[in-house]
Amino acid sequence: MAIEIVQTNLLFGFILLGMGLYCVLSKKNLIKMVIGLEIMSKGAILAFVGFGGLSVQAYVVVAIAIEAIVAAVALSIIVNVWKHTKSLDITDMSRLRG
C-alpha cells in the first residue's frame, strides 16, 4: 500500500516540478515566474508528504514557511524592479550580460 501512495505522490511531485520548470522557462512576466517557482516547491513538498509519518508533517510545515519567506523576498525585489522600470517584462531586464 505504502509503495503505491509513494509512487503516485512522487509522480505528481515530478509533474508539478516539471510544470514549474516549464513556467519559469517560458513566461516573460516576473510574477508568473514567481508562481512557477512556487509550483516547483509545491512539487517538492508533495513528494515529501507522500512518505507520511509524524516527522514529515514538521518538515512540510517548516518548508512551507520557508517558501513563503522566499516568495516574499522575491516579490519585494520585484517591487524594486517595478520602481526602476515600471515594467515586469523580463525581456527589458538583460542589462547584465557577458
Binding site: L21, V24, L25, S26, K27, K28, M33, I90, T91, M93, S94, R95, L96, R97, G98
Partner: peptide, 11 residues
C-alpha cells in the same frame, strides 16, 4: 550564452 535573459538561466 551569458545573455542576461532570466529565462535562459533555467536552461
Amino acid at each position: 550564452f551569458q545573455t542576461g535573459d532570466a529565462n535562459l538561466n533555467f536552461i
